[in-house]
């Protein structure tokens, strides 16, 4: 697997590679939604294991651009996946991580605009330093006295 450098990660509120959500559904779009539902269910399972039945207010996840998961579709799938769980009504906060590679020619970590092409010199590099992340970082528990979101 490729090595990762946490210091090259950037916080973003919008997924850099999110696909369009307007227009008529296509087979690929439906496939995507199904995929993100199964990813959302995996997140629910991981959090459930960790919180032991406590109600959850917010879940933070990290999604790399190369992880195969589209942040907008994942946020959409969250409501479906959390229904009737301790996470019902919770917010999913996605930190998107762009793809970065180490360019040996420029001697530094760069963020390719397309594929693995260095924006500085145009050379290709498969030395991936970030973008593969797909992690649950933390869960914020609901206050026990709180009855609604």
């Amino acid at each position: 697997m490729h090595r990762r450098d946490s210091h090259v990660e950037h916080r973003r509120t919008v997924a850099p590679q999110g696909r369009g959500t307007v227009g008529a559904p296509t087979v690929e779009r439906v496939e995507r939604a199904v995929h993100e539902v199964s990813i959302a269910q995996a997140i629910v399972a991981a959090v459930s294991d960790a919180v032991g039945g406590e109600r959850v207010q917010r879940v933070d996840v990290t999604v790399g651009a190369l992880s195969g998961v589209a942040a907008p579709a994942l946020e959409f799938a969250w409501e479906v996946a959390t229904a009737n769980t301790a996470m019902a009504g919770s917010v999913l906060v996605v930190e998107s991580v762009p793809t970065t590679v180490f360019c040996p020619t420029c001697g530094k970590v760069v963020e390719p605009p397309v594929g693995f092409v260095c924006p500085g010199c145009g050379e290709l590099s498969g030395d991936v330093r970030s973008g593969l992340e797909l992690e649950v970082r933390s869960a914020r528990l609901r206050d026990p006295g709180q009855t609604s979101s």
């Binding site: 995996a42 997140i43 991981a46 992690e135 649950v136 869960a139 914020r140 206050d143």
Partner: peptide, 21 residues
């Protein structure tokens, strides 16, 4: 009495697909 200044946060830091992995 709840304490709004101290949210209870559970750190997970694990791969979403860790079980599959």
């Amino acid at each position: 009495m709840s304490n709004a200044t101290a949210p209870r946060i559970v750190e997970l830091r694990r791969g979403v697909l860790e079980k599959n992995d």
